[in-house]
Amino acid sequence: MNTEQTAFERVQGEVHRIGWRIQYRAKTLKRREHSFYDMEHYHRGVNFTDHTDNRMMVEQLMNTLPPQGKLVIHKLYIQDQTESEVARELNISQQAVNRWKRRMIRQLSQTVNL
């Protein structure tokens, strides 16, 4: 059997590696939550009063959450920590942080839709 690779096989291998790197990068980015304040650059056209109103509304919504849920959401979205960092800090499992996050997002969504 010929041990040398054809040009097609080399390109195919390189495309496979590039695809794997892209998938890995996407998974890594997906695990990272986006900070509420980091998202401000998407809203450059928003004036100061709209920005202040948004922050006040977020604070009011956060106050409807139970203390543990509020803390988890605050650390994930306001302090821009990962689930594993929050889990370590609160001495709970990452799975528990994820459950709290999903529960609190669902509760916030229900509160907003009332």
Rank of each mutant, 00 (worst) to 15 (best):
N63F: 02
N47F: 11
R21E: 11
N63I: 00
N54W: 10
M62G: 03
R88S: 14
I105K: 08
E4K: 13
Q23K: 15
V97G: 00
S109I: 11
Q12M: 08
M1E: 04
D50G: 15
R10S: 10
H16R: 15
Q5K: 14
T49A: 09
S93M: 06
L114E: 05
M62R: 02
N98L: 11
T82N: 02
T3I: 05
A7C: 04
D80V: 01
A96D: 00
D53Y: 06
L61M: 15
V58C: 04
F8M: 07
Q5I: 01
W20H: 09
M56Q: 09
H43P: 00
G69L: 01
V72E: 00
K30P: 00
I22D: 05
Q79W: 03
R55S: 07
L61V: 01
R106A: 14
P67L: 04
I78Y: 06
S93K: 09
I22W: 04
L108R: 02
E14M: 11
L114R: 15
Q79D: 15
I18M: 15
D53P: 00
A96F: 03
R55A: 13
K30H: 12
L29Q: 08
R106C: 03
T28G: 04
A26Q: 13
R21I: 04
E9T: 09
I92M: 14
T82G: 08
T64R: 02
E14Y: 12
W100H: 13
I22Q: 12
L61R: 01
E83N: 13
V112C: 07
R102I: 04
S84D: 10
F48R: 13
R102Q: 14
T6E: 05
D53N: 11
E85C: 03
V11C: 05
Q81C: 10
F8I: 12
H74Y: 12
R31E: 15
H16Y: 02
T28A: 14
R44H: 15
R10N: 07
Q5M: 13
M1N: 06
R44V: 10
E40M: 10
V72T: 08
R99Y: 08
K70A: 05
V72L: 02
N2P: 12
L71G: 03
R88P: 01
S84H: 15
V72F: 03
H51T: 14
G13R: 10
L65V: 09
R21S: 10
V97L: 01
E85N: 05
D80Q: 13
H41R: 15
H51V: 03
M57Q: 12
M1Y: 09
S35T: 10
